[in-house]
Computed example of a mutant assay.
Amino acid sequence: MNMTELKKASIYIFFVSVICFSCSERELGNGYYFLPKYEAIDVGYPEGEAIVYKSNKEYIFSNIRIRGDVLEVHADSEFIIAKRDPLISWETNTGVLEYFIIIKKSDSVIGPLTKENFILKTKKSDINLEFE
């Protein structure tokens, strides 16, 4: 393999990695998805906000579980945790972070919670997910 072919292969691998990472970031398991704000308008979500939704197909927004401006989401086989900064208007947030827990088995949403209450609930429910 010459240097030009090596560069092309490296670029290809980089783009495939980025695409795979962004897909796995959106898929939360059990029919739950995360739609980041930067992608909302591009895929036709009219509110232009980051959301967590449940659907039998990605980009079908009929069952929104958390709306506002979801900043960070993590999931395992049982739970989803989310952190949001609620929107005042399309480009303005409140600056007050809120936390949520989704129990996948029962499709229950707990929140909005303060950080302190979120920490207590995750410990009590033995949820081993955390924000970066």
Rank of each mutant, 00 (worst) to 15 (best):
N2I: 00
N2T: 01
T4E: 05
K7E: 15
K7I: 03
K8S: 14
K8L: 10
A9S: 14
A9Q: 11
S10Q: 09
S10A: 13
I13M: 09
I13S: 05
F14N: 08
F15S: 04
S17K: 09
S17W: 05
S17F: 10
C20P: 02
F21P: 03
F21G: 09
C23Q: 01
C23D: 02
S24M: 14
R26A: 04
R26N: 13
R26W: 11
E27R: 08
E27S: 10
L28T: 05
L28C: 03
L28E: 03
G29S: 05
F34V: 11
F34Y: 14
L35T: 03
P36S: 12
E39Q: 08
A40F: 13
I41A: 11
V43G: 10
V43I: 15
V43Q: 13
G44T: 10
Y45N: 07
P46T: 13
E47Q: 12
G48C: 01
E49G: 08
E49M: 06
A50M: 14
A50E: 04
A50F: 11
V52M: 02
V52C: 14
V52L: 12
Y53G: 02
K54N: 05
S55Q: 11
S55Y: 04
N56Q: 10
K57S: 02
E58C: 04
E58L: 07
Y59A: 13
Y59W: 14
F61Q: 07
S62I: 11
N63E: 09
I64H: 11
R65G: 03
I66P: 01
R67W: 06
G68K: 07
D69N: 15
E72R: 00
D76Y: 06
E78S: 15
E78N: 13
E78P: 08
I80M: 06
I81R: 01
I81A: 04
A82G: 07
K83W: 00
K83G: 00
R84L: 13
R84Q: 06
P86A: 02
P86C: 06
P86I: 01
L87K: 14
S89N: 06
W90M: 07
W90E: 14
T92I: 12
N93C: 04
N93S: 05
T94L: 00
G95D: 00
G95H: 02
I101V: 11
I102S: 02
K104P: 14
K105P: 12
S106H: 06
D107F: 07
S108R: 08
S108K: 15
I110Y: 12
P112M: 12
L113Q: 15
T114M: 10
T114Q: 04
E116P: 02
F118S: 13
I119N: 07
L120Y: 15
K121F: 10
K121I: 12
K124A: 09
K124L: 08
S125A: 10
D126R: 13
I127T: 10
N128P: 07
E130W: 07
